Each structure stands twice: as structure tokens, then as C-alpha cells.
Amino acid sequence: MAKDKLPKNLSEGCRLCYQGAKLVLFITGKCDRDCWYCPLSEERKNVDVIFANDQKITTPEEAIPEAEVMDALGTGVTGGEPLLELDRVVEFCTYLKNHFGPDHHIHLYTGHAPTEEELAALRPCVDEIRMHPPHEEWAGIMTSKFPESIANAKRMGFCVGIEVPSLAGLRHFFPLLDSLDFFNINQLEWGDSCAEAMRARKLEPENPLCNAIKGSTKWAGEINGHPKVHYCTSTFKDSVQLRERLKRIAMNSARPFDMITDDGTVMYGSMDPGADLEMILPCLKAGSYYEEMDDGTIELDWQQMRKIPRKFGGERKIIERYPNDGMIVEVIPQ
């Protein structure tokens, strides 16, 4: 997405997210809250694991290839509750800053109101703090620990905002808006891990084709319209943010014969050459690439595969998948 088309009320972290330019660093699944609307999968929820985008890692060094393959301009640190592993956060973020330079923008998402000691530890390696007050604290937000934490973070030089899901009660944040740099509302979404809790509250998706919860946009309207407030829809996250990140990864990882789609996935042909490989190769355009796989198949430009006479080889299919050997989206027999 072009910078001139971005909404004006975005933090720097969000601007980079809009461009698909932020590595997502899931620092731990451990959390001392039990928010009923938490969308984390069983693979991550309350499990002490680390992911760089969708790649499971254990060390800061392992995060670098994941950032480089997407030309990341920054990193978003999330969880779980990152501050439960403060030393790990500092270790990873410091390594990323040292490797990519001080302009590598890092934002951190936390359900805590960070203390002065925690903020001091984060200050050399984190640029932006996004606080997520749990829903049960919204009504008493002005007498909670969050206003003092926000003031301390601002004084120490952080960009500071709040990021919460679109639930009833957002009006309670009105008195806090002037002290913030930004306020993000994420459209409430249906998730497998929180489906039971949502059914218990009589919540349901807007329609069978999306995860957005019916009524969530109305709840956002309690404060949406204020110049510091940005409402991030589930449609945007699926159709723009993820797509732009995939495109960045695809541009750096696609093989010469992979076709990059408008959605950021890659498409290629796969066929069993049988004993006919020597006969198949002359059918390809001069200078064309192909790759021999461990299972005996070859992968190649899917359009050229279609032009190979049927008398050669065996099974053929077109494969669409996420870039960098990611999840398969579709297999089309030929």
C-alpha cells in the first residue's frame, strides 16, 4: 500500500504494518490473564514458545532470516504477555536493533501497565508501547495503574498508545485519549479457541464467510471518530496487511519459475516426469528453470507445464502456496 494512501492517524508501527513490513515476533505464549476473547491457538496459548512470523525459533539469530526474507523495516513484539519474559524481550529486540540498525522500528504489545523499571529496561531497544487494558478494567481505567504508566512512558520518550478489541465500554477511555499518541481498536473476531466463550455471550460472526463479530463495529463507534482513534477491521487485516507481508516475502524468496499472485502467494507446476525427463526438457523455453524434488517429481513454470505433450510423464498439478515454502493454499490437478 502506498504511503500517501495510509490513514493519517496511524502510529509509525501501524504504518509499517500497513505496508506488510513488520516481522511479528511472538515472544512467549505465557500469560497471567485469562481474557475470554483471546484468539491464540492451542499451539501457542499458555505455552512458552517463540515464533518469528510463522517460524518457530529459539534464539535471536534465528529471527534474522525471517526478517530478511521479507525486507522487514521493523518488528512487532507480541504474546501471550511479553513482560513475563522481559529479559528475553530485551535480548531479542537488542539483537534486532544491532543487526538492522537504530531505524528498525520495534513496538511491543502488553496487557500490563509497565512499571518504571520495566520501561527503563525496554527504552534502549523498543520505540513504541501498545497497552492492552483487560476488558474488566475498562470501567475503572482512570483509577487503574495505566494512566501513570502512560505518563511515565511518554516522559521516557516512548510513543505510547492503547490497542484493544471492539467491545462494549470503549467510551470509558475518552478521558485518557488526550494523554495518548494513538488509540487502536481491532475488530472483534471469532476464533476456534474462544468460540465457546463467544457462544456463551450470544456473539456470532457477521456472516459465514468472515470472522468479524456482529455488532463489533457499533461498539467501536463509541469513540471512533476521535482524531487519535483508528479502527482496524478484520477485512483489512486479511486482505491488506497479510497480503502485503506475503508479497514482500514472495519477492525475496520466489524461484525463477514461481508466479507471484496479487494475494502474495506463489503458483507453480508439479509433475512426475517418469522416465521422460530427457524428452520433457526440450519442450521448455530456452533458459527456463526447473527443480528436481526428493520424491522424484519436478517443479516448474505451471504455464509451460501445460504445454508439455501429454505423452510425456505422469501426474501433473498446479500448486498455490504461501511463499518461502509456506502452507499450501490449493492444489489443482491437470
Rank of each mutant, 00 (worst) to 15 (best):
G157N: 04
Y95S: 12
I185F: 05
W138T: 08
L177M: 12
V126K: 01
P124W: 05
E128Y: 11
A151N: 03
Q187L: 08
L167K: 12
S144I: 07
H105Y: 15
F92V: 13
A113G: 05
I150H: 06
K145G: 04
P102G: 00
F100M: 05
I185T: 09
R155Q: 12
P114H: 00
T115M: 02
M142Y: 07
P165F: 07
S149W: 00
L96A: 13
N98G: 00
D178H: 12
D178E: 15
G161D: 06
L167A: 09
G140T: 13
L180C: 11
A121H: 10
L188R: 08
L170G: 13
E118W: 01
I141C: 09
S166N: 07
I150R: 03
K154I: 03
H172C: 12
R130F: 07
F100G: 04
H104V: 06
V164T: 14
P165E: 08
P102H: 10
E163H: 08
S179R: 14
P175T: 09
H105S: 07
H112Q: 14
F100D: 02
E137W: 15
Y109Q: 08
M156I: 00
E128I: 05
D103H: 15
G191Q: 12
G157Y: 02
W190E: 04
H99G: 06
A153S: 05
P124F: 08
H132A: 13
R155P: 00
F174G: 07
W138K: 11
P147L: 08
W138S: 09
C159Y: 13
N152Q: 13
L177P: 11
S144K: 10
P124R: 01
A168I: 14
L176K: 07
S166T: 13
N98K: 11
P114Y: 00
V126S: 02
A139Q: 15
H99K: 14
T143N: 11
H132W: 03
E163L: 05
